[in-house]
Write a protein that binds this DNA or RNA. Structure first.
Lengths: 99, 99
DNA sequence: TTGGCATATCGGGAAATTCCGATATATCTT
DNA sequence: AAGATATATCGGAATTTCCCGATATGCCAA
């Protein structure tokens, strides 16, 4: 658990927005409904909503994943991302105890 | 409460180290004992322990203060810095609820 | 008032981050 | 196999961050 890497990942408005949307994917990504939300939300849905380029959004998701804040599942030509809630619980605890 | 500013302030090993030391100033800054710990620890003590230049440490402290994570008290030629525990509690809660 | 001490601010080179367009890769469809 | 679709990676210009030395500011002591 690299603290600096986590905080850097969180030091960006777009990435915070993505994390927030992923708290309630059914609400924020209705276009994902036909594929279901079990594996998370695919990159294209996030890209459309965030309004940045595909490459930028893909990079954002990689940064969040390397920090451990989200996980990915590849199925067919899609990559689904979802929050790793355990990481957030651990981070909250880290701030209370160690930082 | 600017979330991005807070996370940027935390995205640095030296600044995290300072915050950690300030949790137990009596333990980590014995040289501060003669002046007491009520107002916090002065810049020089922190600078010596961190081993970076005076200007860098002063800048670090300013960044932490602007993010609301520490507070400062100026007395004579010294500026004392201490943790703002409420900010950390709020941050922990923010991560649990909003991020 | 002069000199010394503590801290803040300035200016800048080096490194990292931001976000993009172009391109690569991988999978699906026909 | 060829084309379409979804995502990842590359290369780069602009911006930001990092950390420094030099200098400015403010306070104290002689």
């Amino acid at each position: 658990m690299d603290e600096v890497e986590i905080f850097k990942a969180l030091s960006n408005k777009g990435r915070l927005q993505i994390l927030n949307w992923l708290k309630n994917p059914e609400v924020h990504f209705p276009g994902q409904a036909e594929k279901g939300f079990d594996y998370g939300v695919c990159v294209g849905q996030i890209q459309t909503k965030l309004g940045l380029t595909q490459s930028t959004v893909s990079e954002y998701l990689t940064i969040l994943q390397r920090a451990g804040l989200i996980t990915s599942t590849r199925t067919a030509q899609w990559t689904y991302y979802k929050r790793n809630e355990e990481a957030f619980a651990a981070l909250s605890e880290l701030i209370q105890k160690d930082i």
